[in-house]
């Protein structure tokens, strides 16, 4: 029992909730970019939150299966079809052997999570299946799945049972009649509000930069990947030239480069950093940002902000 990646699309990787316990050796936590959507997908499928699933960036991914599978799509960045028929995200779906799930371009969101009831049969490395490409850890032998690759499914029993009541239509699939309640996705043309709290070096920045940090929107640049999002916009300045002694950083930290560009660290963030940290995102805001693609405007908003 397996699924086959017919096309991998822009980026499709195997992820879970991350590789904890190895940061002291320099190994990033990694894992899903949008934790909320990933957990929703797994819960819809009756899987544990930590179950490995697919994270697809934007569109292009095509998947087929060799037996009936039950799965869920969450997040966004694409419009999904099975055998050519459109279907909703955040619902349980059942499709028969040979059906094709396709992700098409869509202006909302950025990352789709595909969880399959029973889970993927993938080997864990350093305690996690999450793919960390720079060091070739996790995933399929340290890599992302390629076109034509098969991924075995784990729990055949759960697969048969979960979503058994879903009626399969003539075109080979069926959709469960209830859906998970989720936050709306950011549209490419809107300005997203990113909730944050003051960072450890907030007071290193001059008053004018502190003001502009909240008042002027930034644009997510093309330098936005699983490691971090570089923002374009106003440049942020320190009160005086000062060097930070390298210390731990993590996803959600907003660090500012010497030139004054903010970079928001994301799932694959390095474990140690040396740039001043102006702010830190709330967990919810990290998930929201993971659904924003380059070009989206983001404005920081205070959340229990201590000034």
């Amino acid at each position: 029992m397996s699924i086959t990646i017919v096309k991998s699309g822009i980026q499709c990787s195997i992820q879970d909730l991350g590789r904890w316990g190895y940061q002291q050796y320099g190994v990033p936590v990694g894992g899903v970019m949008d934790r909320e959507s990933a957990i929703t997908a797994n819960r819809l499928c009756g899987n544990v939150d930590e179950e490995a699933l697919l994270e697809c960036t934007l569109h292009g991914t095509v998947i087929t299966c060799d037996e009936t599978i039950t799965f869920a799509l969450t997040g966004g960045g694409a419009r999904a079809t099975v055998n050519g028929c459109g279907l909703d995200y955040n619902r349980l779906i059942r499709m028969v052997a040979g059906s094709q799930l396709k992700l098409h371009p869509d202006p909302q969101g950025c990352r789709t999570y595909i969880s399959i009831s029973g889970g993927l049969q993938v080997t864990t490395e350093l305690g996690s299946a999450a793919t960390y490409l720079p060091s070739g850890i996790g995933g399929i032998a340290g890599k992302n799945p390629e076109a034509g690759q098969q991924i075995l499914l784990k729990d055949a029993c759960r697969m048969q049972e979960w979503g058994r009541d879903i009626v399969i239509r003539e075109d080979g699939f069926g959709v469960g009649n209830w859906r998970a309640q989720v936050q709306p996705l950011p549209h490419v043309n809107e300005t997203v509000l990113i909730a944050c709290e003051s960072g450890p070096e907030w007071d290193w920045f001059d008053a004018d930069s502190q003001l502009r940090f909240f008042e002027t929107p930034f644009t997510i640049s093309n330098h936005a990947n699983r490691m971090g999002y570089r923002l374009d916009g106003t440049l942020l300045q320190l009160k005086e030239k000062r060097e930070l002694l390298s210390t731990a950083v993590t996803a959600g930290i907003v660090q500012v480069t010497n030139e004054g560009h903010p970079i928001i660290l994301m799932a694959d963030a390095q474990t140690i950093g040396g740039y001043p940290r102006i702010a830190r995102l709330t967990s919810k805001a990290i998930s929201l940002l993971a659904q924003c693609r380059p070009g989206v405007k983001a404005r920081f908003s205070m959340n229990g902000f201590l000034s």
Partner: peptide, 10 residues
């Protein structure tokens, strides 16, 4: 410390 990338010793 170890950081920056996996296994890099400062």
């Amino acid at each position: 410390m170890i950081g920056f990338v996996p296994g890099f010793a400062y």
